[in-house]
Design a protein around this nucleic acid. Structure first.
Lengths: 339, 339
DNA sequence: CTGTTAGCGCGTTCAC
DNA sequence: GTGAACGCGCTAACAG
C-alpha cells in the first residue's frame, strides 16, 4: 500500500469497522483493549503502512518526546562527547534530541529558549553561555512546568539540578601536581571571575599554593576569556617574567594554543616550562604526552544529566544530592533548591 | 502577565474583541490585516507573553521547521564539524536541527527514519550507515514528498543530492605524494568494497601506482572496516613484509591507531615508514606533523548540504551539477537523478 | 472491553 | 479588512 504514509487511524478504523479511539488505544498498547482486536489492528496498521502522526498526538497530549541540548559550541570535543552521552540515554528512553548552539551569545540563547518554548520540548539540558547572568528566559520555560538540568556550567536557578565536576578540587589537584614536581613559580590563566566555574578553579589554584606556603603573586594571574588568542597573549605575557617554570590554564583551549606558541618560538615543553590544562580534548594529551590534564568524564556527564532530566519529565522521584567520583575528577550533582 | 506562557490567540482575541482568525493572520504578518489592528495585536501579544504553539501550527500546516541529521557517530570530529556547518545554516534559516546517531547499524537507522516520519521533519541530511545497501526506509520518507540530501557517503537513491569530496582524486593525490617523496612500496588499508566511497579511494590508489608504473601488489592491500583494532591488525600484517616504506590508509581512524602501534614498538615515523591518512580529525595532524593527510572541508560540506536541503524544502530551483574545489579536496555535488 | 463525544491551538476556507 | 465555522489527527473523558 504505502500510499504516502498518510494512513491515519481512521483508515484503519474504517477498514476494520472498529472505532478510531479503540484503534488509538490499541496502537498505544493500552491494557484496555482485548488481545484479539489489538492484534487485528496492529496487523492492519502494518498492512496499510500506518505511521502515527506525532504532530497530532503532540498537540493533544502537550508532550513531544523531544528534549533540547543548549550549549556554546558543538564542535568542542568535550561538548560533542556530552552530546553522545545524552543521545545514548535518550535513544534508549525513546526521546528525540534537538541541539542548539548559543555560541556563548546571550541574545542567541534567549532566542533559542523562546523557540524551544514554542516547540514545547519536554525538557532542556543546558550549559549556559558565558554572558548569561540573569535567568528570566529560562524561568519562563520552567513556568511551563518543564524541567531544566544544567551541566558543566553551574547555575543557581531555583529547583534545578546541576551536573558538573568539582572544579575546585580538579584545579587544586592540578596545581598540587605541578608543585610536587618541583614547579613553584606557576602562572595562572584564569577565566572570567563572573563565572562560578572559573571562580572555583581559581580558588583551587590558590588553595594549593597556600598549602605549600607559596606566596600568591597576583602578577602571575591573567584573566581572560581563555580563547586561542587569549592563550597566545597570555603566553607572551608570561615570557616577560624570568624563572617561570609552569603554566596552569583554567581551560584547554588557552593551554593548547599557548603551548603551540611557546613551541613555535623554541621553548621546550615540559623541560623549560610545564603546562597544566583542563583536558576536554584528546589533542592536548596527544600533542604533548607529558602535559598534565584533568579529564572530565564528558560522556558520563551527558548520561547522568539526561537521566535526571527524564526522571523529572516522567515525575519520578529524584535524589540530587549524590556526589560520585569519576576518573579522578569528582562529579557533583546537586539540586539548587537545596542550597 | 507571563501566566505560564500558555496564552493562546484566543486570549488575545478576547482581550481585544477581535476574532482569533484575525489575530492569527496578524501574527503571521498577513497582508490582509490593517496596519493598525496588526500593531494592536502584536502589542497585546507581547504584553500577554504570547508564544505561538508550534505543535498546533505544525499539525495544521504539516510542516515543522525542523530537519534531521542522521549520521554514524556524533563524536567523530569530522561529523561534529559537519553538524556545526549545518547548524549555522539552519539557525539563519530559522530551522531546528535534530540529530540522530545510527552507530553504523542499519536496524537503528531504520528505526530513526521511522521516527522522523512520525515526527514529520521537513527534510533529512544523512550519511548512511556502512550496512545500508537498500533504501526502502529512505524511500518511504521521500514518498511523503520531503527531501533527503546525502553527505560524505554517496547514495544512488533517485532524485537526491549528494555532497562529498572527490574520493578518487583525494586518494590519488595522497598516493602520488608518497611516490614523489620516494616511497614506492606502499601498503594500502582499504575499506569495504561494498561501499562506493571506499571503492573510489581504492581506485585512486591504484591509478596513482599505474601512473608511475609501479606494479600493484594485491598482497599489499588489506581490506577491513578500518576501526582502531583493524588499524593495529593491519599494521602487524604490514610488518610481515620487508622493505615497506609507506602506508596509505583509506581512513584516519585506522591510520592513527596503526601509527600509534608502530611508534609503540619503536618504529620511527616517517623515517622508517611514511603514513598517509584521510584526515577528519585534528589529532592526526598534531600527533605527527609530518603525517600526510587529506583535509575534508567538513564545515563547508555541512553548509552546502543543508543549503540544498532548504532549497528543496522551500521548492526553490536547484542546480546540483556544480563541482567546486575546497582545500585541495575537490567537492562533488550531484543529483542522483541526473546520472 | 468498546463506542461516543469533544477538543488540543492553530490556520484556512468562505462569507460579508 | 474582518468574522464564523471547520478541520488537521489524535487522545482523554465519559458512557455503557
Amino acid at each position: 500500500m504505502m500510499k504516502d504514509g498518510k494512513t491515519t487511524i481512521h483508515d484503519i478504523s474504517k477498514a476494520l469497522d472498529i472505532d478510531s479511539s479503540t484503534v488509538s488505544r490499541a496502537l498505544n498498547n493500552s491494557p484496555r483493549v482485548s488481545k484479539k482486536t489489538k492484534e487485528k489492528i496492529v496487523r492492519k496498521a502494518e498492512e496499510l503502512g500506518y505511521q502515527r502522526n506525532r504532530l497530532a498526538s503532540n498537540l493533544r497530549t502537550n508532550r513531544t518526546f523531544t528534549i533540547a541540548i543548549v550549549l556554546p559550541r558543538i564542535s568542542r570535543h568535550f561538548f560533542a562527547t556530552v552530546i553522545a552521552g545524552i543521545e545514548e540515554t535518550a535513544y534508549e528512553a525513546g526521546y528525540n534530541v534537538i541541539i542548539c548552539q548559543s555560541l556563548d551569545d546571550l541574545e542567541r540563547e534567549k532566542k533559542i529558549i523562546s523557540s524551544l518554548i514554542s516547540n514545547r520540548v519536554d525538557g532542556i539540558l543546558i550549559s549556559i553561555s558565558m554572558e548569561t547572568k540573569k535567568y528570566e528566559h529560562l524561568e519562563s520555560y520552567k513556568n511551563l512546568g518543564k524541567p531544566i538540568v544544567f551541566f558543566d556550567r553551574p547555575c543557581p536557578l531555583h529547583d534545578c539540578i546541576n551536573v558538573h565536576i568539582d572544579n575546585f578540587k580538579a584545579s587544586f589537584d592540578a596545581t598540587e601536581h605541578l608543585i610536587l614536581n618541583g614547579r613553584k613559580r606557576i602562572v595562572y590563566f584564569s577565566g572570567s571571575q563572573d563565572i562560578e566555574l572559573y571562580r572555583q578553579r581559581k580558588k583551587g589554584y590558590i588553595a594549593a599554593l597556600n598549602k605549600y606556603n607559596i606566596k600568591v603573586n597576583n602578577n602571575y594571574i591573567f584573566e581572560s576569556n581563555l580563547s586561542e588568542q587569549d592563550g597566545v597573549k597570555s603566553a607572551k605575557n608570561t615570557l616577560k617574567f624570568k624563572n617561570i617554570d609552569a603554566i596552569h590554564s583554567a581551560n584547554d583551549t588557552a593551554a593548547i594554543s599557548a603551548m603551540k606558541y611557546l613551541k613555535s618560538i623554541g621553548i621546550k615543553i615540559p623541560e623549560d616550562i610545564a603546562i597544566v590544562g583542563f583536558n576536554n580534548d584528546p589533542i592536548s594529551a596527544v600533542i604533548e604526552p607529558s602535559l598534565t590534564t584533568i579529564n572530565q568524564p564528558a560522556f558520563k556527564i551527558g548520561q547522568i544529566a539526561s537521566r535526571y532530566l527524564f526522571k523529572q519529565i516522567e515525575n519520578k522521584p529524584i535524589d540530587a544530592k549524590n556526589q560520585s567520583k569519576f576518573l579522578g575528577a569528582k562529579l557533583i550533582i546537586r539540586n539548587s533548591s537545596k542550597q
